[in-house]
């Protein structure tokens, strides 16, 4: 498979502060999620990919080329930065027209293109006459996403694009990204909103403290972590009693109690062995069990495990 982005022993330092620490990975075409808490190095990595920063050591290539000060490569990349920053005095069409001209759009096509983009990101037309400084966070996100799409990029890099969007807005952006991906645009998206990424991305890159913790498809990541402790949430009438019984049986690696909510969260040492005997263990405990949920199957859970 073609490699879109390749990093080889890539490090980036800000003075004595570490941004990225000797990471090696590759990203293939498609929709890829970049997951990590604040300070994980997501934005640093994105800024290197979009040619805003240089690596301190190692190398990173996009489409086989180094991004720093590389206009031929940059015209294949679209970028939507994190945060709310937009030129406050400009109206969305003015901004997109200016950036469009800078991106190589012809003067006679730029206005139509900007309008099509604003429609595409579903910015209501009644707001087009307002200045960007008057926009809500969600509206700014839409315009920012639009400017990234102006020059029809092959790779779209989005830094936390869901921030500030309401659930409907997130759904719409996710739909737009899916359509773009289906149209052949590769997308790299960072987010804290893991539920959307899990549903959206084929591949995930887990980042923390400037290091890659796991990468690949969700299936591959799950496979990588199959030996991690299984975590279950049990809803019952006597969580303390059940916890004592399971602890005495020697199957627990740890547990959390929420007696008021009637919840017991357990981490088991050996999942396979536990599942063989768990029916008997629950019956012996005498607790009335209402529900059992595994908390190990979502990406959120994987993420929590690797970042705490």
């Amino acid at each position: 498979m073609t490699v879109l982005i390749r990093a080889q022993e890539l490090s980036r330092w800000y003075g004595i502060v570490m941004g990225l620490n000797n990471v090696t990975f590759q990203i293939e075409p498609g929709l890829t999620g970049l997951v990590g808490p604040n300070g994980a190095g997501k934005s640093t990595l994105i800024q290197i990919i979009t040619g805003q920063l240089k690596p301190s050591s190692g190398q990173l290539t996009v489409f086989g080329l180094a991004p720093w000060n590389n206009p031929p490569l940059l015209r294949r990349i679209g970028y939507c930065p994190e945060g709310e920053a937009v030129p406050k005095e400009l109206r969305p069409l003015e901004w997109l027209e200016g950036l469009g001209l800078m991106s190589g759009l012809r003067a006679d096509e730029v206005k139509g293109r900007a309008e099509a983009i604003l429609d595409k990101v579903k910015l209501p037309r009644e707001h087009w006459g307002k200045r960007l400084g008057q926009y809500s966070k969600g509206m700014k996100q839409r315009v920012k996403l639009g400017q990234g799409l102006l020059h029809d990029p092959e790779l779209l890099v989005l830094d936390e694009p869901m921030n500030g969007l309401d659930p409907m807005g997130r759904q719409e952006v996710a739909q737009t990204l899916k359509e773009l991906s289906a149209g052949g645009v590769s997308i790299l998206i960072s987010s804290h909103i893991l539920a959307e990424l899990e549903a959206l991305c084929n591949n995930i890159l887990l980042l923390n403290w400037g290091r890659i913790l796991a990468s690949g498809s969700q299936k591959e990541i799950r496979s990588d972590i199959k030996n991690w402790p299984e975590e279950l949430e049990i809803e019952c009438d006597a969580p303390e009693k059940l916890a004592r019984h399971l602890f005495a049986a020697g199957v627990l690696a740890g547990f959390d109690l929420s007696p008021e909510e009637g919840l017991l969260r357990i981490r088991v040492k050996d999942a396979a062995s536990f599942y063989e005997q768990w029916t008997a263990l629950l019956l012996e405990s005498g607790a009335m069990v209402h529900a059992i949920r595994s908390r190990s199957r979502s990406l959120q859970n994987i993420y929590d495990k690797v970042t705490t």
């Binding site: 206009p71 031929p72 015209r75 294949r76 030129p87 400009l90 003015e94 901004w95 027209e97 200016g98 950036l99 469009g100 001209l101 800078m102 991106s103 190589g104 759009l105 012809r106 003067a107 096509e109 293109r113 099509a116 429609d119 595409k120 579903k122 102006l150 020059h151 029809d152 359509e179 773009l180 289906a182 149209g183």
Partner: peptide, 28 residues
């Protein structure tokens, strides 16, 4: 919104000329 297939601009991969880029920056 237009479908993605019709969304692609034509000729956008041409590198912006000096005049075009100036025009964009002047507008901003």
């Amino acid at each position: 919104s237009p479908p993605i297939s019709s969304f692609r601009a034509t000729g956008t991969h041409a590198r912006p000329g000096l005049a075009g880029a100036f025009r964009g920056l002047w507008l901003l």
